[in-house]
Design a protein around this nucleic acid. Structure first.
Lengths: 221, 221
DNA sequence: CTGTATCCGTGTTGATACTG
DNA sequence: CAGTATCAACACGGATACAG
């Protein structure tokens, strides 16, 4: 009755026993910024079918990585959220992203709002920020996020977007195309509007440098 | 003809496309300390069958994570090694191990010599080391490793074990039982011999503290 | 001895349809 | 909205046979 497991004392192998199953890490990623509903996760991960999501959530709950909680009335809906220890996987997920950002075969693709926020936390450059101090609002679909940049550090979380120095509103994929793909904001203005001080916006757009791609040594693809 | 992939622009998801397949990460782990032969990897990972190893090595090579190289005559054997970028996955694999070391369900198990060395790199405590300065030899089966502790840092690599301050020789699993399991070295003296200054050995054995286990919130297992 | 290729039983995954 | 049921396709692991 036991599922397939690496029988290895190595802690990294144990990590794979816990979260090595397909979709487990993307599902955790979607909860890193706070509790989500079943259908929120499905929307963010279009390739994931309902039965697999059910199974992953059960396994993550059994491993004490995820908790299910019922919101108090009148909402009364069930949500899933990471436990304290589950939240500590953020460093691990950022390490995955930081390493893979150097892949010679990486191609752009659609990203969920949560991935976009996490990519900012991962790729933020203290050097590029210098002594910048700003509050940036991000508005993607029904969700709003708030970034605070100060002292060479960034925090980005779900939050209110009134009283921000600049605001991005629209499709998160357009922001990504501009942040990491070098597309000028003007070229995606039909999908994303940026309001606020233009110099501040320009500075912000350069805070997230990508590392150089690793050489592709296997020429014959 | 394309294999199953997350179609997600998130870099962490791309990492899973590259190294998310079963056994990929343990295979990489075995190469983190230098080139290995096909059969070295099989010995270190007893649950991995030959056909799956062949497939993983091909995929990792196609992704520019692994290179195959032919040792010059008279050895003339083929070895597999990580590329520069592949080596950079060490931080990621250590992050996996560090996070999973807090799992409430973690159980001890046999570890390969390479895992043991990597666990030392991962769990080393600069605080515990203080101003300790020592060279420790480790001798597991046919392989020797050398740890240098100085300035609150540790390096551990394959290396010679002449001229060390202390030497452990025998079964790496006995060392693990003592390092992390609290078993006195005296209780495993039939499997592992430790030679050198007893105070130094005792200090060494306390350099690798485990973090506290996370609470098990899902009582009904 | 060192790998590689093929076959096969089994379990996991994923798409669709369906139910409370 | 939040899952469950069903079923087909695939990946895994074991055994075996084969090539250098």
């Amino acid at each position: 009755m036991k599922k397939r497991a690496y029988s290895d004392g190595c802690a990294a192998a144990h990590a794979l026993d816990l979260i090595g199953d397909r979709w487990a890490i993307p599902v955790m990623r979607e909860m890193l910024l706070g509790a989500r509903r079943f259908s929120d996760i499905r929307t963010a991960l279009p390739g994931l079918s309902a039965n697999v999501l059910t199974q992953r959530l059960e396994e993550l709950e059994a491993a004490s990585i995820v908790q299910r909680r019922k919101l108090p009335p009148p909402a009364s809906v069930q949500v899933y959220e990471l436990t304290q220890w589950g939240l500590e996987s953020e460093g691990l997920i950022k390490a995955l992203g930081r390493w893979a950002s150097r892949s010679p075969h990486k191609e752009p693709g659609p990203m969920s709002p949560v991935s976009v926020i996490l990519s900012m936390r991962t790729m933020f450059s203290a050097d590029r920020a210098g002594d910048m101090r700003a509050t940036i609002g991000l508005h993607f679909g029904p969700e709003t996020y708030r970034a605070e940049i100060a002292g060479g550090a960034i925090t980005v979380d779900r939050g209110e977007i009134d009283d921000v120095d600049a605001l991005f509103s629209g499709d998160q994929n357009a922001l990504i195309a501009s942040l990491y793909g070098g597309v000028p904001l003007g070229d995606v203005s039909d999908r994303l509007t940026a309001t606020g001080n233009p110099d501040l916006i320009d500075h912000f757009m350069h805070l997230f440098p990508l590392p150089p791609a690793a050489p592709d040594l296997h020429k014959a693809q």
